[in-house]
Nucleic acid binder design. Structure first.
Lengths: 225, 225
DNA sequence: CGGGTTCTAGAACGCTGTTCTAGAACCCGA
DNA sequence: TCGGGTTCTAGAACAGCGTTCTAGAACCCG
C-alpha cells in the first residue's frame, strides 16, 4: 500500500517486451513533453504500442508509475565523486552538500512536473541514496543528533520548497500571465509596499537566489568546523 | 488565465444563494473531511444543495476553486499583532518571523491537502499579505537587496518544503505502512548506514525539527543586528 | 507434444471536468 | 402592473479518466 517500493517486482522470464524500465522511461518522456496532464495510462500504453490494460500487469496502479518516474529523475542527480561511505574522509563536506543540492534542484527544474507530483512519500532507492549521501556529508561536518537529522531535513525541504515554488511560477508558461500578475500586484502598492518596491514578482536570478539561501542555511548550522 | 485573482468577481445583485464565499467554505470543508480526492464539482455542488453546473456560473474552472480554497486557509495564519506597515518600528523582527512561519506551517498541517495542491502560483490576497509581512520584518533586520529577497524566498520555501514533506509522510494515514517502510529501510543497512543509524524514518519531534531548521536559517542571515 | 505460467488485450463500469441548452427568478424602468 | 433584460439555476450529454473482468494468446519447461 505504501508504494511500489515495498512490493516485489514481477518476476519475468527472459525479455518481456514490456517491463518496468521501459514503462518508466516512457512515462518520463510523456511527462517531459506534455506535463502532468499528459500522463495517462491509455496514452502511456499507446506510446509503448500496447493495450492500456497491459500496463496493469507490470504495475498495480497509476500512482506506481508516478512514484517510479519521480525516483527515476532523481537518479540524474550526480553524487559528487568519491565514495560517500568513508565517514572519516576529509573531503570538504560543504562542497559536497552544495554540489548535491544544486544538482538536485537542477534535476527538478529540468522536469517541472516533478514539483507538482511531490506530495507523496519519496522512498525510492535514488532518493534514499541521495539523502544518505547528504546526511553522511553533514555528519562529516561534526553535526550530531538531533541537529544532524534536523539539518538534513532542513536542507532537503529547502530544495524541495524552492523547486515547487519556482517551477509552479514558471509553469505559467507564457510570459504574458506572469506580466499580468506583476501588473496586478503593482496596482496594489498601498497594500503590499515592500513586495512592490523590491519587485517580488519580477524576474530575478533564481539560481543566485537559491545559492544565497543555501549559504544562509549552511552558515547557520552548528557545525564543529 | 493566470488564476482567479486577475478575473473580476461576478457582480451580484443582492444576496444570491450561492456566492464565492459559500463555495470556498464548502470546498475547504470537503477537502478537510475527505482529502484531495474528495473534492469534486458534483460533490461540492451537492454539498451546497445545487446542481453541479450551477457552480460554473460563479467559478470558471475547478482550479479556481482550488486556488480560492488554498488562499482561504492561509487566511488562518495569524499576523503577529502590531501593524506590519511601520518599517521604523523597533519590534523584534525575529520574533515576528518565527511566529509567522510557525503559524504558517501549522495552518498547512491542519489542512494536509494544501501541501499536495501547492504546485500552483500563490497569488491570493492572504498569501500576499503574509509574504508582505514577512519581507517587511526582514527589512527591519537590516537586510537589503539582493539578500532581502533571497531571505524571503528562502524562508517561505523552507516552510513550504517542510509542510509538503511532512504531510505527505503523514498522509500514509495508518501507522502500518509507515512501519512497513521503516522495516524495509532497516533491511538495507549496508546501503544506507547513516540513515538507518539516525533513524531517518522514525517518528521524531517534527515541530522541534522544524524550529531547529528555522534557527539555522535565521542565524545564517547576513543581518545588521 | 502438453500443461501451466507469463503476458496481452477488448469491452465495460462508474466516475471525472466541462459545455450546451433551456428555462426559472429577479430587478428595474415605463 | 407589466415587459424585458440580466442574473442565476439546472438537466442532459460529451469525451476522457483509472481500473477491473474476462478471455485468449505466447512462451518455457518437462
Amino acid at each position: 500500500m505504501t508504494g511500489v517500493w515495498l512490493r516485489p517486482q514481477r518476476p519475468s522470464r527472459s525479455g518481456p517486451p514490456l517491463h518496468r524500465d521501459r514503462i518508466v522511461t516512457a512515462a518520463v518522456e510523456l511527462l517531459d513533453r506534455e506535463g502532468v496532464g499528459g500522463l495517462t495510462m491509455r496514452r502511456l500504453a499507446e506510446h509503448l504500442d500496447a493495450g492500456p490494460t497491459t500496463l496493469y500487469w507490470h504495475v498495480a496502479t497509476k500512482d506506481d508509475v508516478v512514484d517510479l518516474a519521480l525516483d527515476h529523475i532523481f537518479g540524474e542527480v550526480r553524487l559528487p565523486d568519491g565514495s560517500a561511505g568513508d565517514a572519516g574522509s576529509d573531503r570538504d563536506w560543504r562542497v559536497d552538500v552544495e554540489g548535491l543540492l544544486l544538482d538536485w534542484r537542477a534535476a527538478m527544474l529540468r522536469h517541472p512536473w516533478s514539483a507538482a507530483l511531490l506530495g507523496r512519500p519519496m522512498l525510492g532507492p535514488n532518493v534514499l541514496t541521495r539523502t544518505e549521501f547528504l546526511q553522511a556529508a553533514l555528519q562529516r561536518s561534526g553535526l550530531v543528533e538531533p541537529d544532524l537529522g534536523a539539518a538534513t531535513h532542513a536542507l532537503a525541504n529547502y530544495v524541495i520548497g524552492s523547486a515547487v515554488t519556482l517551477s509552479s511560477w514558471q509553469r505559467l508558461d507564457a510570459p504574458e500571465p506572469r506580466e499580468a500578475a506583476r501588473d496586478h500586484l503593482a496596482t496594489q502598492r498601498d497594500r503590499y509596499p515592500t513586495l512592490v518596491d523590491t519587485g517580488h514578482l519580477d524576474d530575478r536570478d533564481w539560481e543566485d537566489t537559491f545559492r544565497r539561501g543555501l549559504t544562509y542555511l549552511l552558515d547557520g548550522l552548528p557545525t564543529r568546523t
